[in-house]
Design a protein around this nucleic acid. Structure first.
Lengths: 141, 141
DNA sequence: CTCACTAATGCAACAATGTTGCATTTAAGG
DNA sequence: CCTTAAATGCAACATTGTTGCATTAGTGAG
């Protein structure tokens, strides 16, 4: 994505445009799948560790990125769709972790999920899946 | 659940029966929903912090309990069904966190979920949902 | 362009969570 | 009982995330 587009996204959410934020967004955008926090820290080593946490938080709150958890300690981040609101992320997708290459992918939901949970009113949900990704499956053949 | 049943579960998975393990299982079993780690630590304060981690690990590996993540820092644990194998948990259920009382419930899946993810082969999945639980909904009326 | 104001940053310190090594104790089978 | 391997407790360490505060920098107004 062009830097100007990233700046535009920041402006759209009333977030100041700073080198750190652009660096972070570029790193997230450039990574295939959701990027692990440790990788962010390694790639953005010039940025203070605390600043990284706070920058991530700003972008999370601003709805520019989202957390893609994977049922582990490590947390992952990915860019949001344009349609995401600051307070209401529109993520009807699956966070898929490949058992082989360990990448985290955000896959679209192709089925309208109807969570039938009786008297429990579901407001949001997230699906964590694991298995084998497309790339690793084709390598195996 | 009776203590004898808990012992039986330990034996079934070739795990030694120790007071710590029985305490832990009793705490998990007695809690409504999945129990947070912090609550376990508070309730089992007599147990060494490290021993708690290791005991949890043994029971996780033995398939007696499972982790119920909730897209947060805190981790939660719940008893497994009898049918769970040590290496393959049969959890086609939803981990539901109530926004009001913050309890974590393990709800059964009433719908057969067909994850249509193209060339991505799904092996396991977990659903994290949030909303309002039955108890909190009825209180509100 | 400059100024003023607020938000962002960097640093230090702290807090919470989880792990490893090692010596000691204990469960379980003979 | 006795033996043996597993479980436990303690100390130390590692990782991850947070808070306070002084300094710097982005932004909008003039």
């Amino acid at each position: 994505m062009r830097e100007e587009d990233l700046k535009q996204r920041l402006r759209a959410r009333d977030l100041r445009i700073t080198p750190n934020r652009l660096q972070l967004l570029t790193a997230v955008d450039g990574f295939v799948g959701a990027i692990p926090h440790t990788k962010l820290q390694a790639d953005l080593a010039s940025m203070d560790r605390v600043t990284l946490y706070r920058t991530i938080n700003s972008l999370l709150e601003g709805g520019l990125i989202h957390r893609a958890s994977a049922n582990e300690q490590e947390t992952y981040y990915a860019l949001c769709e344009d349609s995401c609101q600051a307070d209401a992320h529109q993520h009807q997708h699956i966070h898929f972790k490949c058992d082989t290459c360990e990448k985290i992918y955000c896959l679209p939901m192709r089925q309208d999920l109807h969570l039938n949970t009786g008297a429990f009113k579901v407001r949001t949900f997230e699906i964590l899946a694991s298995g084998q990704c497309e790339a690793c499956a084709s390598l195996e053949k």
